[in-house]
Amino acid sequence: MHEMSLAEDLLALVEQAANAQGFRRVREINLEIGALAEVEIEALAFCLESVLKGSLAEGARVNFTAVPGEGWCLECAAKVPIAALYAPCPRCGGYQVQATSGFEMRVKDLLVE
């Protein structure tokens, strides 16, 4: 259940921002989650519901924006889109692809009051 740890860390980030920027209520949380990130969005949403309860972000709407995965194909010497770490290069079909982005798990911004 590492989504639970992530949810708790996310709340910690939000509360830290609340202390620093002086807001008391969070209405919306906007997250960017990469296609290759080690997180299950549904599980994270479920954990957040529990973790945010009783906090300044209780009932906040959580929006997930997907960030596509990208890799560098050694054979093609080119950036290619990839859907999974074990996926072949969509150009040459080979597996010499180093994943370069799509690991994001970021809190982008918050709608607060």
């Binding site: 992530l6 708790e8 921002a17 008391r24 994001e104 809190v107 911004d109 709608l111 009051e113």
Partner: peptide
């Protein structure tokens, strides 16, 4: 279990731009 104190209560956007795993 952890218990988180509720906050009190005009809507604005606050940029965070931080990794969820930033603390770890």
């Amino acid at each position: 279990a952890h218990a988180h104190a509720p906050g009190l209560s005009q809507a604005r956007m606050v940029s965070i731009e931080q990794d969820i795993l930033a603390r770890n």
